[in-house]
Simulated scan of single mutants.
Amino acid sequence: MTTLLTIGETLAVASTPVGTPLRNAADLHLSTAGAESTVAIGVRRLGHTAAWVGVLGADELGARVHRELAAEGVDTRFVRFVPDAPTGFMLRDHRTRDYVSVSYYREHGSGTRLGADDVEAAFAAFDGIDMVHLTGITTALSPSCRAAVLRAVELARSAAPWCRSTSITAGRFPDRHRRMCARSCRTPMYSSSVTTNSISSPKKSSP
């Protein structure tokens, strides 16, 4: 049983100090990013259970992402490591206090290897799932990712409520990928959603 099952890509992140352009920076701060894992961490911090399904590279960045999610208490047993694709990477260049430039290095990365088999294995492992969380960005990463999201929606319709974000940032993906995401999100399976606002801290029983 799990409160939340979330499926998608998590990226390793390197950020410059605020107000320091990358070309002048001597230090970088390492972290992780990704809507799905961020939601999973938030749910865990509220005291609920959360599991993340995704694919990481068999590299040091992948190991770091995995360690950080596990340290937050996120169930990572459905993470798959691949030796021939690097973990996706995001670079945040905090050039000034008010301006941040973000660069993505994710094309052909490990996140694109997510597939329907990964989703099916996760659903089969739980005897109950309270909520499934998906994002539209995942559908744009690759055909196998799109198949994974659609399979998750299909399984969730009979197993749990599901919530989704369909936002695609212009310029982040080629036009054909944004169109593919839009088509996916217009299917009847995406006609309703449950927001994560319904998740709150567990209530303590009275003494």
Score class of each variant (00 low, 15 high):
123 F>L: 02
37 S>R: 08
104 Y>V: 07
56 L>R: 02
160 A>R: 01
99 Y>G: 05
144 S>P: 07
125 A>Q: 09
115 G>V: 04
155 L>T: 05
143 P>G: 06
61 L>R: 12
145 C>N: 06
108 H>D: 12
44 R>G: 00
154 E>G: 13
87 T>Q: 04
102 V>K: 10
28 L>Q: 00
70 A>K: 13
161 P>F: 00
29 H>Q: 11
53 V>G: 13
44 R>H: 00
32 T>E: 09
105 Y>G: 03
79 V>A: 15
56 L>G: 05
75 D>T: 03
135 T>N: 04
110 S>I: 03
36 E>R: 01
42 G>I: 07
103 S>W: 10
89 F>E: 02
66 H>L: 13
57 G>F: 01
104 Y>M: 06
152 A>R: 07
58 A>C: 07
115 G>W: 03
85 A>L: 00
138 T>Y: 09
65 V>E: 07
137 I>W: 02
63 A>Q: 11
141 L>Y: 14
118 D>E: 03
84 D>Q: 11
136 G>K: 04
81 F>A: 13
98 D>V: 11
142 S>C: 12
54 G>H: 04
69 L>E: 06
121 A>G: 09
143 P>D: 12
123 F>V: 02
157 R>E: 14
173 F>K: 04
88 G>Q: 03
59 D>K: 05
123 F>E: 04
122 A>Y: 07
61 L>N: 15
52 W>P: 15
89 F>Q: 02
106 R>V: 13
96 T>M: 06
120 E>H: 11
149 V>C: 05
65 V>Q: 13
74 V>N: 10
66 H>K: 03
103 S>T: 15
122 A>G: 10
91 L>P: 08
121 A>P: 15
143 P>C: 12
32 T>N: 04
117 D>H: 06
91 L>S: 08
48 H>K: 00
124 A>D: 14
72 E>S: 12
156 A>Q: 10
